[in-house]
Simulated scan of single mutants.
Amino acid sequence: MAVSYLRRVAVGGAAAAVAFAGVGAFTATPAYAASSKVSVVHGIPDQPVDVYVNGEKTISDFKPGAVAGPLDLEEGSYDIALTKPGEPIAQAILKADDAQVPGGANISIAAHLDASGQPKITPFANDVSRLGAGEARLIVRHTAAAPAVDVRAGGEPVFEDLTNPNEAKADIKAGNVEADVVLAGTDTVAIGPESLTLAEGTATIVYAIGSAEAQSLTLVAQTIEGLHSAPGGVPSGTGGQAGTGLTTWWYALAAAGVLLLVGGGARLVAGRPAPVRR
């Protein structure tokens, strides 16, 4: 992929975080919509979970590295608990009552490690604005226990000095991309190279997950479709390892992310302008 194909780039992080009330620019649903498109990315290594909703187990052994969704998640409040597989709610590793789920957003909730290796949940507002003819959107999110990285395409840096839990994105010519992740400012490969197929009218979101110290770094991909310039329906999305059945366990995972938004000080991470590297 030639770097000259880049049309715009943005990098975002905690300093550019926005509240749920401000996600309208990244959604295709009207501000008055009563539900959100919610996808969940499990990026915590070696920690499957059982999920409880309102006191009932709704999914067992949700695996690390999986992507699920999206669900049209109705606005409302939920009691949720996440436990180690087989353990009761009394031993929950994360629990909340009356977790509030907003409406009118397109959100990905990533359960991952922070830069120091501690588990956390980060909600991202997905950019589902329309793409030009022949274009695709590439979004890279640093959600791994690793230092700052550069993302390269064809051996050339495209996104530089990306840190956890920030993202970088660009609208580029649709096609195949050979990409890798290196330690910032070096040629030391941390992940890849990987071949990505970026289809016209889609947003491909690539998450770096795992731990550098444990040598478990890898990539997880999520795809959002329907972003063509001509209206083609409300953008939703498909996860690379999503299941085909959508049941009430979704409410637990999405509400868990919202819990941390409301009670733990986390906020939606959105992009802020940065210069385009050419």
Rank of each mutant, 00 (worst) to 15 (best):
I209A: 08
T238K: 14
V234I: 15
P235N: 09
V220M: 13
P235K: 04
A212Q: 15
T244R: 00
H228R: 09
Y207N: 13
H228Q: 14
Q241M: 14
S229K: 11
S211K: 09
L217W: 02
A242E: 13
V220K: 03
V206R: 01
T218A: 15
G243N: 07
L227M: 08
E225N: 14
A212S: 14
T204S: 13
E225Y: 07
Q241A: 14
P231S: 09
I209K: 03
Q222T: 10
H228P: 01
S236V: 09
T244P: 00
A221V: 07
V220P: 00
A208N: 04
I224P: 00
Q215P: 07
G237A: 10
G226V: 00
I205N: 05
G240T: 06
L217Y: 01
S216F: 07
G232N: 14
G240E: 11
P235C: 11
I224T: 04
I209R: 02
L227E: 01
G240N: 12
A203D: 05
I209V: 14
L227D: 01
S236E: 10
V206S: 10
A212D: 11
A230R: 06
Q215G: 10
Q222W: 13
T238Y: 09
S236L: 14
Q222Y: 14
I205F: 05
A221T: 07
E213D: 15
T238C: 12
T238D: 12
E213K: 15
V206P: 02
S211C: 13
E225V: 06
I205H: 01
A214R: 11
V234T: 11
Q222C: 10
A208L: 12
T204K: 09
A203W: 00
V234M: 14
I205C: 07
G243L: 09
I205R: 01
P231E: 07
G239H: 05
G239D: 10
L217I: 02
L217N: 01
Q241K: 13
P231M: 09
G226Q: 07
E225A: 13
V206C: 13
S229V: 02
H228N: 13
E213H: 07
S236K: 11
S211N: 09
L219R: 01
G239T: 01
G226S: 10
Q241N: 15
G239F: 08
S216M: 09
V220S: 12
H228E: 14
P231F: 08
G233D: 05
A208D: 04
A212H: 06
G232F: 03
A208Y: 05
S229I: 07
A203E: 05
I205P: 01
A203M: 08
T244H: 00
T223M: 12
I224Y: 02
T244C: 01
S211Q: 11
Y207V: 03
G226F: 02
A208R: 02
Q222F: 12
Y207I: 02
T223P: 08
G210K: 04
H228V: 04
V234R: 07
H228F: 12
G233I: 02
G243S: 12
A212K: 13
V234S: 11
Q241F: 15
